[in-house]
Amino acid sequence: MKARVTITLKNGVLDPQGKAIHHALEGLGFGGVNDVRAGKMIELDLADGTSDADIEEMCKKLLANTVIENYRIERA
């Protein structure tokens, strides 16, 4: 069983990496990009029966820093 955790910066938290990517896209001539936010994706291969609550705990304790980041869990 797999789960995919997507970690993104919270709204209002400045994202210097996203900004740099945005500038680079503009430098390549791609117009029409309003904003870029960078995040990360973590794929977990889990034992069957791992509960949603367990995955939540993983996110809160380690995978995301909830001071600055949101997380979204998708079961694949």
């Binding site: 938290v13 400045l14 210097p16 990496q17 740099a20 820093n65 001071v67 600055i68």
Partner: peptide, 9 residues
Amino acid sequence: GALMRNAGI
């Protein structure tokens, strides 16, 4: 708080 990537990258 948290320490994030430097603003100037």
